[in-house]
Design a protein around this nucleic acid. Structure first.
Length: 314
DNA sequence: AATCCGGGGTA
DNA sequence: TACCCAGGATT
């Protein structure tokens, strides 16, 4: 499996900016931006952000409001605050030298199991294993097949990932796994016909059998594609259901508030009542409690500060 | 283990 | 509409 995937990656890897550096600061910026956010949407923001904050010290010293402004369009604005706090911690608690150990990396705000492993691997080229949505999907299919039952837990899957990392090639291997998940072994309609590890993929074998059985039973004409999974319970995240009508949701209003505060000149703040009326045209005083609760949440996240009943970016 | 946290693209 | 995306923090 290793050789086939590494050869494929050498041929088909996308040219992504964060693959040209081993600077842990630049890697961390990329990984924070990429949390739950597609590569194509990070691409236009990444270089612009680094142009504004070229190094760790610049970002650490910048006004948080400016960091939040530069984060516009990426979503999950807490990540911007976490990122700045993380580099401030590197500066203050590690003398400006990025920790290499995943246990220490893990202590930085906004850095969980995935990001700690990714920084250790992609910045410091350590042969570590970690799990993201791409790697998880690829390994589930290759090693556990198409079945939706008896899916392994995260521990077992991580153990599989660790066993696969080729010595001395952790960087390329993990990039390749993620690239395969992003380009070939996609969630809805995997392009098995172009997959370099198809011969050793358990799911592909099972889909072939399913396809053949269908042909026998139905007399269906031969298809060029193997049968595809109709649903993937194990890969499904918890909060997909009823996320309909995002507009008007709490998350949506949080985003609107930050959007309203972003263009304000430095140190200018917006009275709560004014914020309410800008948020929704028919804003009434009895909705003030609702607005205040919303703002309190943003304050807890470090995205907003309030003084004298007026709010602004920190 | 469940929820919350943005936003935009796609079938 | 439902799904999906280089996850993390909180409870």
């Amino acid at each position: 499996m290793q050789t086939a995937l590494l050869d494929w990656f050498a041929q088909h890897a996308r040219d992504l900016p964060w693959r040209h550096t081993r600077d842990p600061y630049r890697i961390l910026v990329a990984e924070l931006m990429l949390q739950q956010t597609q590569v194509v949407r990070v691409l236009p923001k990444y270089e612009a952000f680094l142009a504004a904050f070229p190094d760790l010290a610049t970002l650490a010293a910048a006004p948080t409001a400016e960091v939040i402004r530069r984060w516009a369009g990426l979503g999950y604005n807490r990540r911007a605050v976490n990122l700045q706090r993380a580099v401030q911690m590197v500066l203050q608690e590690h003398g400006g030298v990025f920790p290499r150990d995943v246990v220490l990396l893990r202590q930085l705000p906004g850095v969980g199991p995935y990001t700690a492993g990714a920084v250790a691997c992609f910045a410091f080229e350590q042969d570590v294993a970690f799990m993201d949505t791409n790697i998880r999907r690829v390994l589930l299919r290759t090693h556990y097949g198409a079945a939706q039952v008896d899916v392994p837990g995260e521990r077992a899957l991580l153990a599989v990932a660790e066993r696969l990392v080729p010595a001395g090639q952790g960087w390329t291997w993990n990039q390749a796994l993620m690239e395969l998940g992003a380009l070939i072994c996609t969630a809805a309609t995997p392009a098995c016909q172009r997959c370099p590890v198809r011969p050793m993929c358990r799911a592909y074998g099972e889909w072939q059998v399913t396809d053949a059985a269908t042909i026998l039973a139905m007399g269906a004409p031969l298809r060029t594609q193997a049968a595809q999974p109709r649903q993937r319970a194990a890969e499904r995240r918890a909060d997909y259901r009823s996320e309909t009508s995002f507009v008007g949701s709490r998350r949506w209003y949080r985003g609107r508030i930050v959007d309203l505060l972003r263009p304000l000149p430095p140190e200018r703040s917006l009275p709560l009542a004014e914020l309410g009326s800008q948020l929704k045209p028919d804003f009434t005083p009895d909705e003030m409690a609702w607005l205040d609760e919303l703002v309190q949440g943003l304050i807890r996240d470090g995205l907003v500060v309030m003084e004298d009943g007026a709010v602004r970016l920190p």
